[in-house]
Structure formats: C-alpha cells, structure tokens
Simulated scan of single mutants.
Amino acid sequence: MNLLNRRALAYVGRHPMDFTVQCLQGFRANQGLLLAGAVAYYSLLSILPLLLLVVVALSHVIAEEELLFTVGRYLNWLVPGQSKPIVAEVAQFLEHRDVVGGVLLVSMLFFSSLAFTVLENAMCVIFKHRVAIRRRHFMVSAIMPYCYILSLGAGMLLVTLVAGSLQVLGEESVQLLGRSWSLHGVSGMLLYLLGLAGEVLVLSSIYLVMPVGRLSLSHALIGGVTAALLWEVARRILVWYFSTLSQVSVVYGSMTTAIIIMFSLEIGATLLLFGAQVISEFERVGRGHQQRAPQPMTT
C-alpha cells in the first residue's frame, strides 16, 4: 500500500492537470450528476427524520435550547441560509414528542436510513473495480445506516459539548500590558475550525465505510479534504447568490425553501461523489492504470 501511495503521489505531483481531467472524465463516465441527483433527493427525505431522531435522543442529556442552537449552526453548513425553517420544525416536534408512537418511530428510522442506502449504491458505481472483486453481505448493508446514525448522534453530542465550551471562552478576556483583550474573535475562529474539522472527519468516515472493501485512512482523508474544501467554496457562493442575485422566490413562491434545500443538497452530493471519484482515480494511478480511458456507464 505504501508503494502504491508513493506511485500515485508521484504521478499526481508530476501531472496535476492530467489527474484532474482524469477525475472529471471518470465522474462523467460514471454519470456522477445523475447519481448526485438521486442522493440529493433521498437526502431531502432523510434529513428531517434523522435530525428528529438525533435531537430527541440527545435532548435527554443536553438542554434543548443549546442543542437546537448547535444543530442550527452546523446545519447551516449543509444547507446554507436555510437552517432556520428546519430547526423550527425540529423544535415544534420536540414540543409534542410525547405523542410519538411505535409506528412513527419505525417510519422515522426507515426514512432516515434511505440516504445512506442510496449513497452506498452510488459509491458502488464509482468504486466498481472494488465491487467486481468483492461484494458486501446484504445484512451489513442493512445494518450499516443505523450504525452510522448512532455515530452521528455521538458526534453531535461531542460537538455540542465542545461548542458550548468555546462559546463560554468567547465571553472571557485576557489582561495583558494593562489592556483587556476579548476572546470573542478567538472563540469564533475556533468554532469555525471545529466545524471544518468535523466536516472533513464526517466526509472521510463516509469514504472509509461506504465503499466495498477496506479503504486506507490516507485515501479517505484525501477525498474528505478535497470534498470539504470544494464545499466551502460552493457554500460561500451559494450564500452570496441566494442573498443577492437569486429570484427563486419569485418563481417558486411557497416552495422556495424546499427548492433551495434541494439545490444545496444536489451540489453537496455532487462534490461528495466527486471526492469519491478522486479516491478511485488515486487508487487507479497507484496501480499504473492512469493511461486507460474511463469506460462510460451504459444502461
């Protein structure tokens, strides 16, 4: 594996543009935009049930107000500018959580896992060279989404606790040379870095778990950093566009929020799958297959 990594890094270092073009060609050959559309659609169905499950579980440990604030802050990374209506729905559900029955709970579990199932299938297309060698047992595929939901809940608990500590830090000040220096700016920077690090870790964990077979941590981090940096650029562009130039509310009216969330998820899913394509091509060039043109996926 170290030999393959060195070979791949040497090729990418010598031919960065060729590698980029190769990734784009592979993504196009795998119908990446079509796969991203499917992932985005099912993510739209799963995002609210998933949040409800996580928030209801964590509300027994963390104060609801603090939990909702943290959810809104980091949900804004996923759907820029549209976290408020989602958090409002979650808060309204919390007020009536006593009426949740077994049927509703099972339905929420089912819908919250749909995005992970579709994402796994999309990863199988991009990493088809792995699927051709080894297939995953169907029971593993059935259980994996729920294990991932538990992991996300644990991650949300940790992030909420750390974010609360950083917010308290922002209210403090340091006395130096007779002057008082507020730590508010430091706290804000640390919260941003916490969100960015969490984003990289979540994306890397997806690349580490979803593809068939064992993927090295270094490869997963390559995809995670690539997708996270691209999403950071796209997220800022989306915030600027929807706040200045967009006329989507004129066209879609009451459906504006759903359309914007769907559009954001579409771009996010595209970058997520492109990160997977980068890992796939990195594996291929490590094995000396960089000259082979990608074969288009046919129907």
Rank of each mutant, 00 (worst) to 15 (best):
R73V: 06
Y74D: 04
Y74P: 00
N76G: 08
W77F: 14
L78D: 02
L78R: 03
L78H: 00
V79T: 14
P80A: 09
P80Y: 07
S83W: 02
P85L: 13
I86H: 01
V87L: 05
V87P: 05
A88W: 07
A88F: 09
E89R: 13
E89L: 12
V90W: 03
V90Y: 02
A91G: 13
Q92P: 09
Q92V: 14
F93N: 07
L94H: 05
H96Y: 14
D98F: 06
G101Y: 02
G101Q: 01
S107Q: 10
S107R: 12
M108E: 07
M108P: 04
L109Q: 00
L109R: 01
L109Y: 03
F111A: 11
F111M: 13
F111Q: 10
S112T: 01
L114K: 08
L114F: 06
L114Y: 04
A115H: 09
F116M: 03
F116S: 04
T117D: 10
L119Q: 04
N121A: 12
A122D: 02
C124G: 13
C124Q: 15
C124P: 06
V125I: 09
I126V: 15
F127R: 05
F127A: 04
K128P: 01
K128A: 15
K128W: 09
H129L: 13
V131S: 13
V131C: 11
A132K: 12
A132S: 12
R134V: 13
R136K: 15
H137M: 12
H137E: 14
H137D: 14
M139W: 14
M139V: 14
M139K: 06
V140W: 01
V140S: 05
S141R: 15
